[in-house]
Amino acid sequence: MLAYTFKRLIQGVITVWFIATATFFAMHAVPGDPLANERATTEAIRKNLEARYGLDRPVTEQYVLFLGNMMRGDFGISFTQENRRVNDIIRESFPVSATLGILAVAFAAFGGVVWGALTAIYRNRLPDLVITFLVILGISVPGFVVAALGQLALVDINAWLGFSLLPIAGWGSIRHMIVPSMVLGLGTMAYLTRLMRSSMLEITNSDFIRTARAKGLPPTRIFLKHQLRNAILPVITVLGPSIAAITTGGFVVELVFAIPGLGRSFVQSVQQLDYTVIMGTTVFYGAFLVFMVIVVDLLYGLIDPRVRLE
């Protein structure tokens, strides 16, 4: 198990290095640079700035410098946000994104398992059809539409009630987090519901469920101890990538609900070609994604004993 964990971590480091390298050269291949945006710079000022940020050196040299700094955990200073260190930006805004992401994942996983199990139990009957309809809606409607509609609905509800049930935007209290995390988790929840449904149906017809019934176990026990545990395995498999996707993919929701998360910095940095912030956030997100996948793979072994041996 320890050797396996170690192996996965080494693989993870290589993956992150690859992400960093690919992003670095892709970023430099884009026309323009962080200074091209600057108001009326004279040639001399531009030269000075380039020298200060090291942009006057060859790309390969810059790359080596960047790698060296990255190893020390230093991503440098932002080009556009005056004198803010990239590490500080991540440190301040990532906890916000992570909180939102974790809530969204919890919502998606819980909802996916419950709805998926329900659709399987009521297969081809009314509850199944209703939930399946909503699931298809959840998968097909893009996140920014759901976000806008969610916000609009919130406005209407608050107006109708005459007081603010939940705030429509901003960040701070738990009440701010409810609607954005639901919106953010919706697509994943819909996807997990489908997965859970097919997984449940497959398990229902399996031999060991027949054995459990032949043993005379009560239906609730069969459901909880035999069916659910086995049906949940594929859901856990996709949970790792889902966590990363949700946490890193939240920038639309962050923008709509005016949440000061990392997603916003990430998108802005790309638009402004803010080299250091692009590299910092990409490497950070990449490492986070890789790490979550490893964590979930290790977690999988806790539920399925067959995986533990490897």
């Binding site: 031999d207 027949r210 054995t211 032949a214 005379g216 176990l217 035999h226 004993p305």
Partner: peptide
């Protein structure tokens, strides 16, 4: 369907033992 019969008064074994047991228990 009551518990009293199945598994208690009447036991049953099946054809394929490889898939007849719960793999996670």
């Amino acid at each position: 369907n009551g518990r009293d019969i199945r598994g208690n008064r009447v036991g049953m074994i099946f054809q394929d033992p490889m898939s007849a047991l719960n793999p996670t228990m």
